[in-house]
């Protein structure tokens, strides 16, 4: 699953590269696209935390037998 998340992140970096049209009558489409991109970043971050959280590393760090 971590590889899938990484692949999505790479695809998003490409999509980031992305007309005078306005969306909703006030937002240039070039801005609207990147607003959607920002929301997708938050969704990707949520997926990463749900499916790629480094549980074992964190447990190792939080182990009371600290060095």
């Amino acid at each position: 699953m971590r590889k899938v998340i990484a692949l999505i992140a790479i695809v998003m970096a490409v999509l980031h590269q992305d007309s005078p049209d306005l969306v909703f009558g006030f937002m240039p489409i070039g801005l609207f696209y990147h607003v959607c991109f920002s929301i997708c970043c938050a969704i990707l971050a949520t997926l990463a935390i749900k499916f790629a959280w480094p549980t074992e590393l964190v447990e190792w760090a939080e182990n009371e037998d600290s060095e």
Binding site: M12, V35, F37, L44
Partner: peptide, 8 residues
């Protein structure tokens, strides 16, 4: 938006 992806 690039910062949104890369910072996170």
């Amino acid at each position: 938006s690039s910062s949104g992806l890369i910072h996170a």
